Simulated assay, not measured.
Amino acid sequence: MGRLSTVLPSLQQLRQLQLKDSSFCEHEVTCDAVLSGLGALTNLTHLVLPEVADGELLQHLPASLLQLELVVDEDEGPVQLGHLTALTRLDAGQYATLREHHVLPPNLLELSAGNLTAAACLLPLKKLKELTLHTIEYEAASAEQLQQLSSLTALTAVHLTYWTPADITDTAAAGWPALKLRSLHLAPGGDGCFARSTLLQLSLLTDPTAMRQRAMPRLTHLSLEKQRVGRAAAASLSQVRGLRRLQLMDCQLEDCSAAEIALGLKPRLKELDLASNAQLTDACLPPLAYALPGLKESSFRDCAGISREGLRQYVLRAAGDDEDGSYSDSE
């Protein structure tokens, strides 16, 4: 590591550098020792770093960077990247939490992180087009904080994944309509079901009239895991029109509920994943084939109540409309 830190300043023409391999992880070595030498690489545009233990050392990163991928230990000081004015793409790691006191590159177009607790650190990013939060758990930005992001008029795609307890997700849900959500993954941590009001918020994200009035794109990808979807929840989900991909995994889904959802979501839905719903039987397959003739992919993995013969008939019905469809059975 010491040798690398002395060699780096001589590599003036280096444009791409990746310091992310097994030598760092297996020996529990951080990249802090080389960060001080990176400032001399004035032509560097793409950089990948392993875990950074000392946030203050990020000040040594060269201002020439256009893309940066790193893993930040938030317990070791705030993220201070305001000097990277040329940076347009930042991946802070799927477990990094963005907080109010963090300073991010001002001209970002794409930002990926684990979580966000306050909107303040994003509000200066007037050019931001895409925001991805991979791991929202334990704590989450409130609805009021999410609503503040509506001031970012360039932001056209937001992707959120919640692993929080259902009550925390319910609290945040009122802020979703203010965002330009394109994909939403909900997997409640612990026991508990989402409030019906949370599921009703989803229909607002796909309502064509509301979307046109606010000049916003529709939600196209929705995923729910380990969430009981009974008749009332199914009725709400059937109103989430405009979806192109729907995943309801281990949701205790019954035949009648699956059929109701499919009838409501036709004809735009292209991918359907109903894996691990043991209560589904062959009886749900004909309504699905009828309601979703344009389906490209479907999965019934680990659906013990669906037989091979039922799947064969389902595939034959679907193939009559689309020979390119792809299907996965319960094994």
Rank of each mutant, 00 (worst) to 15 (best):
F24D: 12
G230S: 14
Q12K: 14
R231Q: 08
T132I: 13
P78N: 14
L311H: 08
K127H: 13
V79W: 05
T42F: 00
M1F: 00
A232F: 00
L274P: 08
L11S: 10
G82K: 02
P165K: 09
Q227Y: 11
K266R: 15
R245F: 08
L87Q: 11
L104E: 13
A63E: 14
Y138V: 03
D282L: 06
T153G: 02
E254M: 02
G190K: 03
H27Y: 11
Q247I: 05
L199Q: 07
K270Q: 11
E137I: 08
I168D: 12
Q213A: 06
V229E: 13
A195I: 03
V79T: 10
D21F: 00
A304L: 10
S151V: 12
L44Q: 08
C25N: 06
R214Y: 07
M216H: 14
H102E: 04
L265H: 04
D321V: 01
A187S: 12
L58F: 03
Q80M: 15
C25T: 01
L81D: 09
T45K: 06
K270Y: 00
L199K: 06
R268T: 15
L122S: 11
G2K: 15
V103R: 01
K226E: 05
N107Y: 10
V34N: 14
D54A: 13
E271L: 00
L288S: 00
L35H: 11
R212C: 06
R312F: 03
A304P: 04
E144M: 04
A258W: 00
Q18I: 04
V315T: 01
C251R: 09
C193A: 03
Q94Y: 02
A178M: 02
Q16N: 08
S330M: 05
R241V: 07
R99Q: 08
N43P: 00
L131W: 10
D255R: 15
L186R: 07
T164V: 09
M216S: 13
V229N: 10
D32Y: 04
C251E: 12
N107C: 09
G175H: 07
M249Q: 15
A53H: 14
V158Y: 11
S276P: 01
T206D: 10
F300R: 02
A96E: 03
C251A: 07
Q227M: 05
V52M: 09
E323Y: 12
E271I: 05
S223E: 15
W176F: 12
Q279Y: 11
Q148A: 15
Y314Q: 08
L280I: 09
L222Q: 14
G325E: 10
G190H: 09
F194H: 13
Q252M: 06
E56Q: 15
Q148D: 11
A262F: 00
L104M: 09
L224Q: 07
A86M: 03
G320F: 08
A233E: 15
Q252H: 13
A120I: 06
D167Y: 01
A278W: 03
L133A: 06
D207R: 08
G264Q: 06
K226H: 14
E225G: 12
Y314D: 08
M1H: 15
L125W: 07
D167A: 00
